[in-house]
Design a protein around this nucleic acid. Sequence first.
DNA 1: CTACGAGTTCAAGTCGACTTTAAGTCAAAG
DNA 2: CTTTGACTTAAAGTCGACTTGAACTCGTAG
Lengths: 129, 129
Amino acid sequence: MAISDVARVFGLRTSAIRYYEQIGILPPPMRKNGRRRYDDSAIFRLAVVQRARETGFTLEEIRELFFGFTEGTPPPKRWHQLSQRKVAELRERIKRLQLMETLLKRVEECRCDALDQCGERILRQRRKK
Amino acid sequence: MAISDVARVFGLRTSAIRYYEQIGILPPPMRKNGRRRYDDSAIFRLAVVQRARETGFTLEEIRELFFGFTEGTPPPKRWHQLSQRKVAELRERIKRLQLMETLLKRVEECRCDALDQCGERILRQRRKK
DNA sequence: CTACGAGTTCAAGTCGACTTTAAGTCAAAG
DNA sequence: CTTTGACTTAAAGTCGACTTGAACTCGTAG
């Protein structure tokens, strides 16, 4: 497969694939006439990368997934280890967003005539706590 | 109040306050010996800015809140208008995070011996849908 | 022959929300 | 006096994940 085919399959730009290679999370593929040619194993690698991105992992964490364990550590153990942190982080972020929704509703219920009044109200509320 | 006092009250750095002024969401305060001095109205403004940040608004949206309406438009109307989009956006983001959690659990349940096998499994799953 | 499309490299640009740095000013304390 | 500490400015740097641009090389179709 040529790089453009891989890009199409995964819905990425070719530049993204080259970038992944550059930062070391995709191994350099073999070349034909200086052009990258990808085999199945490269495709599988990329599938893992993409799934990890979808589950909220950063590229740095993906690098950890691949290279942060002693060779031979089985995938379930790797995923599990990284998931601990990530689940906590996701729940934290969900909470933050839900708090935003609450605050949004509250601020919408103001009866202020001017925005400065809103500010005054907010400060009073804050002091009470 | 000096800029450092304002920063302390709001838990911001002085540079952030100057930045807000620079991009126009805080009005330039009066000066004493070339130094910024803030009065109550500036404090109220900043309280509104901070609350808006806490509810997920970008600085651009905050600018809209202040200057994107015909003068005299009451705060409830302003907040409401901007809230529409924001609530939808927040729910969208919450959904994405919850999907991540689901995917995370699923990927953790793999029994693969090597990460490439994970990739293969992921691709097969994807094709089924 | 030449033009085209797809690939290559390396460096630099993008986004948002700030922070950091460098160089200068100024009032109060020692 | 001089030092200190808080302030001033404008410009540049940061972060992550890419994208974009410029300049170049191929193989192939007309």
